[in-house]
Nucleic acid binder design. Structure first.
Lengths: 341, 341
DNA sequence: GCCGGTTGTGCGCACGTGTTCACATAAAAG
DNA sequence: CTTTTATGTGAACACGTGCGCACAACCGGC
C-alpha cells in the first residue's frame, strides 16, 4: 500500500472519534449495551451502566448525534436565515432566537451576509437533514424555499406572511402599527406628516406605507413628503436632511428605529427644528438604543421576546405534527411614548 | 403489526428524504452511478450524468451531507460560542464571522445566551462531529474545552490566548492598546486619569488594566480613579456618574465603547464637564455607533474584519494539518482620533 | 420440579452515502 | 484475429448508531 507518500485526501478526513465499539471492548460488554447505557428508557443493569458511562468518560466517548439521526431521527439542526446582523433589530432578534433555541436543545445554523451569498448558502445547507428552517426578513427570493418544501423541511417565516403548506409565519401588524403612529401624530396636532420608508421590495415596507396612507386618508390628510432609505442610521439621516430642507413637514414617521435615530440626528444638525416642539419623530421596533436618554425615541415596540417565543411554539407544534395546517400569528406593536413626539 | 394505533415515537421521526436509491431506480441506473453523478472527480458517461442530475432535480434529491460525513469526511459544521449578542461588538463580530464562514462553505452552529446555559450547550453540541469550535470572549470555564480536545475537535479562541495543543488563538494587543490610549491622554495634558473597566474575571480586562497602570507609571503618574462595570452603556453611565461626582478626573479611559458612550452621556447629563475641553473620553473597539457624529468617540479600533479573516486562516491551516503547532496571532489596535479627547 | 413472568443481554439489520475492486465493454494496437 | 489499453459500471463494504428480535438467566408460585 502506498502509505508512505503523503495522501492529499487524508487532509479531507477528520480525526476519528472514539466509537461505541471501543468503549464496549474496554468495558468488556457488547456494543448494544453501550448504546443502551446512553438511552434513558432502555433496560440495563445499574452497575453495568455505571461502568460503561465511566469507561466512556475515560475514553472521551459520546454518541455521534449524526449517526443516530441517520435512522430517521431528528437531527436537532435548524437553519436560520438571519438577515443583516449589522442591523440592530435583526441582531437583537437573532440573539434571542439563538438563546431560546439553545435552551430547547435545538442547534441553529446561521446564514447571513449579502443576499446573493445567502441565496447560494440556503441551497447548500439543504444538503443537511434539517429539522426546520427559520427565515427572517423579506428580500430573499421565495423560490429557494420551494426546495425546502420538496425536501419536507418545514419553514417558519418571521416578518413576512407566506401561505403555503408546511409553512408557518409570525408577523407584526405593520399596517396597524403605522396607523397608530400616524394617528398619534395627528392627535398631537401635526398635519404635515412625512414618511421615511425602507427598501420597497420588502413586504413589511408596503404594509407600513399602506397604514400611513390610510390613516392620513381617514383624517382627510395626504402624505406631505416621502423618501426611501436603506434601514440604516446614515441612510435615515440623509433622507431626513433632504426632506427637512426641501419641505416643511412637522412630523416624520420612520419605518424603523435606525432611520428615526438618523432623522433625529439630521434635525439636530440642521438646527432650525426642535424635537418635539416643532417636529415630531416616531420610529418602529424599539431597539435598545431607542430607550437611551440621549435619544428617548417614541416608537412602536416590535416585541422580540414574544415573537421568538411564538416561533418556538410554532416549531414545536410543527415538529409534533408535520401535517398540521399552516398557522399565521400576528403580533400587535405597542406604542412606546417617549420624548420625540 | 400494530400500525393502526398512533405511535408516539413517530413524532420523533423526521420525514424521509428522497435517497440515491430512488433516483437510481427511476433513472434506470445503479445507485453508485447516482453517487458518481454528484462527484466532480468520478468517471461517468456525460449523458448518463445529465440524465441522473435531471431525475434528481425532479425528485428533489440531494445527497445527505450527514450520511456522507459518516465515512470520516468533514461535516462542515463549526460551533461558534458567540458571547452576548446584545453587545454591539460581539454582534458585529459574529455577523462578520458568519458571513465569512458561509462564504467558505462552513456552517456555523451558534451558541449564545447566559453563560450557564451556554456551558451546558457546549457539552451537548459536542455530540455532533464538528470540524472545529470557535470561542469568543472570556468568561467561560476553560475546562469545557478539554472535552473538545478529547474529541480531537480543534478550538480557536478569539479575544483570549490559550496555550494548548490543537488550540489556536487570535487576540488583540490589549495592553499595548491601553498604553496607547493613556499616552494619548497624557500628551493632551491630562494628568488625573480615571479608568472604567469590565468584569474582572475576563482576561482582556486584566491586560487592559495592566497597560493603563504601566503607561501611567512610565509618566510618573498614578491612576486617579477606577471603577468596574458590565461592558454595557447603562453600566458605563452609572460608573462614570459616580466617578465624575466623587473625584476630579480630567480624563476617562473605558475598556469598551459601550461604556465610553455611557460615560459621554453621564458627562453631558452632569453638565459641569465639557468634552473634550475639560474632560477627555477614550473607548475601545470602534463599534459602528462610535463613529456617528452624535458621539464622535475617540477610540481604539479592534478590527473585526481583520480578526475574522485571521480566524478563517487559522481554521484552514488547522484543518489542512491537524497536528500543526499552535499559533497565536496578535492584532494591534489602532487609535482612531475623533472628537472626545 | 415444572412453568410463566420478569429482567437483562447479544446478534443483526437498517439508515444513506462514498469509494474500492473486479469485471465488462469497446476501441486501439499488434 | 488476438492482445493490450481505455473507459464505464455494478456489487460490496465501511462509517456509527438505535432498535427489534430472540434468547438466557433468574425468581416466585403451585
Amino acid at each position: 500500500m502506498p502509505e508512505d507518500r503523503p495522501n492529499p485526501i487524508a487532509a479531507q478526513k477528520r480525526p476519528r472519534r472514539v466509537t461505541a465499539i471501543e468503549v464496549a471492548r474496554k468495558a468488556g460488554v457488547s456494543r448494544a449495551a453501550v448504546s443502551r447505557a446512553f438511552s434513558e428508557t432502555a433496560y440495563l443493569d445499574a452497575g453495568k451502566r455505571e461502568l460503561i458511562l465511566q469507561t466512556a468518560a475515560e475514553l472521551g466517548y459520546r454518541p455521534n448525534a449524526l449517526a443516530a439521526s441517520l435512522q430517521g431521527n431528528r437531527t436537532g439542526l435548524v437553519a436560520v436565515i438571519a438577515g443583516d446582523l449589522a442591523r440592530q433589530y435583526d441582531s437583537a432578534f437573532v440573539g434571542e432566537l439563538v438563546s431560546q433555541l439553545n435552551a430547547a436543545g435545538k442547534w441553529p445554523i446561521i446564514l447571513g451576509g449579502p443576499d446573493t451569498l445567502t441565496e447560494q448558502s440556503v441551497r447548500q445547507v439543504l444538503s443537511y437533514p434539517l429539522d426546520a428552517m427559520i427565515v427572517r426578513g423579506g428580500s430573499l427570493n421565495a423560490a429557494i424555499f420551494d426546495d425546502a418544501a420538496q425536501l419536507s423541511i418545514p419553514v417558519i417565516f418571521s416578518g413576512r406572511v407566506v401561505e403555503a403548506p408546511l409553512v408557518d409565519s409570525v408577523c407584526c401588524r405593520n399596517e396597524a402599527g403605522a396607523r397608530l403612529a400616524v394617528e398619534t401624530l395627528i392627535s398631537k396636532g401635526r398635519r404635515k406628516i412625512g414618511y421615511i420608508g425602507g427598501p420597497s421590495d420588502w413586504s413589511s415596507e408596503n404594509e407600513r406605507l399602506a397604514g400611513v396612507i390610510s390613516a392620513l386618508q381617514d383624517a382627510g390628510l395626504a402624505l406631505s413628503a416621502k423618501a426611501n432609505a436603506d434601514y440604516s442610521l446614515n441612510g435615515g439621516r440623509d433622507a431626513a436632511r433632504a426632506l427637512l430642507s426641501d419641505t416643511n413637514v412637522d412630523a416624520l414617521f420612520c419605518a424603523n428605529d435606525a432611520m428615526a435615530l438618523g432623522a433625529l440626528s439630521a434635525a439636530k444638525a440642521i438646527g432650525q427644528h426642535h424635537v418635539p416642539n416643532t417636529l415630531s419623530i416616531i420610529g418602529f421596533d424599539d431597539v435598545p438604543l431607542a430607550g437611551l436618554p440621549e435619544f428617548d425615541l417614541t416608537t412602536l415596540r416590535n416585541p422580540v421576546k414574544r415573537t421568538v417565543a411564538q416561533i418556538l411554539r410554532l416549531l414545536d407544534a410543527r415538529l409534533a405534527d408535520p401535517t398540521r395546517k399552516s398557522e399565521v400569528v400576528m403580533i400587535s406593536p405597542e406604542l412606546i411614548e417617549r420624548g420625540t413626539h
